[in-house]
């Protein structure tokens, strides 16, 4: 499976981290961790800029985090016109890389608050695109 499957609409056909999409299809949201120096990356990277290694493992992103910030977009860029309103946010897991994604549609916009407990799950769109989203913990 290629990376064109990723997200509402992908702009990248090939990446060495395309396995990320296969993992999403298996129900896992994973980042990459350097086998040599242990540095963790989300979104995943194929190469470690800390030690130049290209040997990477996959790791599960933490199950619990808090919402560091968010915004609800009332307009969308070209190609996403069918989607608004949609909320995007950043999850802070306390340590390690943060995570950027949309929030699940079933969370009421007025219920979204900075600092709320959240977690992350894979998401499959009706057209077959695969992504991940932030949900209430």
């Amino acid at each position: 499976m290629g990376f064109e499957k990723f997200g509402r609409r992908s702009f990248t056909a090939m990446t060495k981290t395309a396995k990320f999409v296969d993992l999403l299809a298996e129900g896992k949201v994973e980042g990459s961790a350097c086998k040599k120096c242990g540095a963790k990356f989300f979104p995943p990277r194929a190469d470690c800029a800390a030690c130049f290694s290209k040997e990477m493992d996959w790791y599960d992103v933490p199950k619990k985090g808090t919402l560091e910030t968010f915004t609800t977009a009332q307009y969308a860029p070209f190609g996403f016109e069918a989607d608004p309103p949609y909320t995007m946010g950043v999850v802070n897991f306390g340590e390690g890389p943060k995570l950027f994604a949309r929030l699940a549609k079933d969370i009421k916009i007025e219920d979204i608050k900075i600092g709320m407990d959240v977690t992350v799950r894979p998401l499959k769109y009706e057209d077959g695109q695969i992504s991940f989203e932030i949900i209430k913990a």
Partner: peptide
Amino acid sequence: GRGADIQWEAPFGTMMPAYYALYAQA
């Protein structure tokens, strides 16, 4: 939006007002 990360963020439908709004909200 594609002036930011096209591989990992633009697929969510990002745009400049939304990015700055993340800063504004926090």
